[in-house]
């Protein structure tokens, strides 16, 4: 009797054990927490005051002297944008060739130098470092000869790099949603208080808008097109930048509008170069002078920017920097 009871108990234990093992599952798969990316503080460059931000070196057509300053003897490497519609962008309908108002300047300089042009796409933040500027006390190796990428001339930047004479006078403005146009036109930048406004990291636009309206929430992106993606995905309410760039963004999105507004700042564009490449800068100035006089500047402006920004003429250059 006892042994029968024992056998039954054992069978029970075995069946229960089997069922337990069958039902017993694995622990849920866990994805390890991602390490938070190291946050980099913005550039802590102390603003420099001066009254000759647009003053460049006297033009010179000494191509040989300019060529001696190139990084490669037979090649001009120019840092450009490939996503700034109408200024410098890769056109998918034209075999992805990079073209635009800035690119025309780069082509003209390379042609005048008699060398091959290499366009290297760079971000706004990369501009000074790739030109070999010393930033935040850190030296950088020069990798490009020039920057033709809507580069605003200012006194602080002159301490890091050299500029050509001004080749376009842009202004900083704001792009908003179609729904917000009325409010913006009525109250101006005050309507942006508490709103998220995007501008490229390393550009002057973020500093400028914070100075005018400290209550905006500045949101950086790698470039203006990155701002447009954030804008389309509802992450930011507005984008600030140069009127040239904003016109290109508005052209890509019918819900993005640049309302009638007062300019926030003047943004004179120059071609950036290494601080020591004065012969190259002087040569670029002679090319810009030539383009102004032979109508090439106007032709280029009319082709790329006039449909979006209306009539304009070439800005007058200032020389005499030593």
């Amino acid at each position: 009797m006892k042994s029968v009871r024992l056998s039954r108990a054992m069978v029970g234990v075995m069946v229960a054990g089997g069922l337990f093992m069958s039902a017993c599952g694995y622990d849920a798969t866990v994805v390890p927490e991602a390490k938070a990316p190291a946050t980099t503080s913005g550039s802590a460059i102390k603003p420099v005051e001066c009254d000759n931000a647009t003053q460049s070196y006297q033009p010179s057509n000494d191509a040989a002297a300019a060529r001696r300053e190139l990084l490669n003897p037979d090649r001009l490497v120019v840092g450009v944008s490939a996503d700034t519609y109408q200024l410098g962008w890769a056109n998918p309908f034209d075999d992805s060739r990079i073209q635009g108002f800035d690119i025309d300047v780069a082509k003209a300089v390379a042609d005048a130098l008699g060398v091959k042009l290499q366009l290297r796409v760079i971000s706004a933040a990369d501009r000074p470092t790739l030109l070999g500027a010393k930033t935040d006390g850190e030296a950088h190796e020069q990798e490009i000869d020039l920057v033709a990428r809507n580069y605003t001339m200012n006194c602080t930047r002159w301490t890091q790099i050299g500029f050509s004479a001004v080749y376009y006078n842009a202004t900083q403005k704001v792009l908003v949603r179609k729904d917000d146009v009325g409010d913006f036109e009525k109250r101006g930048v005050a309507s942006l208080a508490g709103k998220d406004v995007c501008a490229p990291a390393g550009s002057t636009s973020i500093d400028n808008i914070k100075e005018i309206q400290p209550d905006v929430e500045a949101v950086p992106a790698a470039n203006h097109t990155g701002c447009l993606v954030k804008f389309q995905q509802g992450e930011v309410d507005a984008i600030t930048g140069d009127d040239t760039v904003l016109a290109g963004l508005a052209a890509q999105d019918p819900y993005a509008v640049v309302p009638d507004q007062q300019k926030l700042t003047d943004e004179p564009y120059g071609i950036g170069a290494n601080k020591g490449d004065k012969d190259l800068i002087a040569f670029v100035n002679s090319v810009l002078e030539q383009r102004r006089s032979n109508g090439e500047w106007q032709k280029s402006y009319d082709k790329w920017l006039k449909p979006y920004l209306g009539n304009a003429t070439a800005p007058a250059p200032t020389y005499g920097r030593r």
Partner: peptide, 28 residues
Amino acid sequence: RQGFPVGAEYLSGASTQLRADATPILSA
């Protein structure tokens, strides 16, 4: 397809996001 450069930004953003979001899950 409309010739807008913002397309390239969406693409590089998609690739970056894929590696940031999906890759750790798949590795786990």
